[in-house]
């Protein structure tokens, strides 16, 4: 009955331990796992594999085409990274504004993703960033777009024996200007799950045409989601207030907000319109212009 505990010193060792014990729980910062243990919501815990000593998973590396963030990188480190603030603004913003100082010191980006909360802040940011999840097991390495990563609340595409190694954030192509915006509201300023969180990234060419638009949204479905139908409104068009209005008017049809202790679905439907408008305006660069009425 007693719970087993492993603390592998390398990634390979972790994969080996997990291969033998695929029913064990991976432990990173513990900020999602441990509250559930303390609240006695976990009934059948067999073992814990603590990833905290695996240095390879704690790296932030800039490559030519993408930036790599190891799954074990904490929110505090992301929040302190000038590189990410400059080149992956939404991912930076999500970590900077989530939780509390102590939570950001412990909680990791990988844990946020695998926890797959409908309102996970990094989840929403990574969706908008067009990020890829680097997933590894002893037998296979695969790169899965984050937009295909979530299956349901708390469920992801990870198979038994697999560990999330890190995420790849693609860089914008040359000649493309990328605009970002992250909007979030919660019940408190510090320490609270988002009531609605939205991340928008818009890629515009030198002519000001929208070449790509990605909208990630949280708490509007059982997982955080991309709002593809709204994205299409902008692609290959010049960004304008009227297109933004159109997206805001249509958003209701594409969401199914959650109803929980933080807010009602009714409230979320109201507030998402405001945040979506702000996010699209900021990411497109229109926010600084006089808003049309």
């Amino acid at each position: 009955m007693s719970v087993q505990y492993y603390s592998p010193g390398s990634f390979t060792e972790a994969l080996q331990v997990l291969e033998r014990n695929s029913n064990y729980t991976l432990l990173a910062g513990g900020t999602d796992v441990v509250p559930r243990l303390n609240l006695r919501q976990v009934k059948d815990l067999q073992g814990l594999i603590y990833l905290g000593n695996i240095v390879e998973m704690k790296k932030i590396v800039e490559h030519n085409e993408h930036i790599f963030i190891g799954a074990l990188v904490t929110h505090a480190r992301i929040a302190a990274s000038e590189l990410l603030k400059q080149k992956a603004y939404n991912v930076w913003y999500a970590s900077y504004h989530m939780g509390t100082p102590a939570i950001r010191n412990a909680g990791t980006i990988g844990g946020n993703l695998v926890n797959a909360s409908p309102a996970g802040d990094s989840c929403v940011a990574l969706l908008a960033a067009g990020a890829l999840a680097s997933i590894k097991s002893l037998h296979e390495n695969r790169l899965v777009p984050v937009k295909e990563f979530f299956v349901d609340k708390g469920k992801t595409v990870l198979k038994p024996g697999e560990i999330l190694y890190g995420v790849h954030l693609p860089k914008a192509a040359t000649g493309i200007k990328k605009g970002c915006s992250y909007q979030r509201i919660g019940t408190l300023k510090g320490s609270s799950t988002a009531i609605i969180n939205i991340a928008v990234e818009i890629e515009q060419d030198t002519e000001g045409m929208c070449r790509a638009c990605r909208i990630g949204a949280g708490a509007v479905a059982s997982t955080s989601v991309r709002l593809y139908s709204l994205e299409e409104i902008f692609v290959d068009k010049k960004m304008s207030w009227s297109l933004i209005e159109q997206a805001v008017n249509e958003v209701d049809a594409y969401i199914n907000p959650i109803d929980d202790t933080y807010a009602t679905a009714w409230y979320r439907r109201k507030v998402i319109k405001v945040l979506l408008k702000r996010a699209l305006a900021e990411a497109s660069g229109l926010a600084s212009e006089q808003e049309e009425v």
Binding site: T31, V34, P35, L39, N105
Partner: peptide
């Protein structure tokens, strides 16, 4: 015991953490 209040906060290797979310073996 859920990381929300900070009453249990300590420094772990110099970093602020909620000790209620830190499993002892780690």
């Amino acid at each position: 015991e859920t990381g929300d209040c900070g009453a249990c906060a300590v420094l772990l290797d110099g970093e602020l953490v909620n000790s209620c979310l830190v499993l002892a073996p780690t």
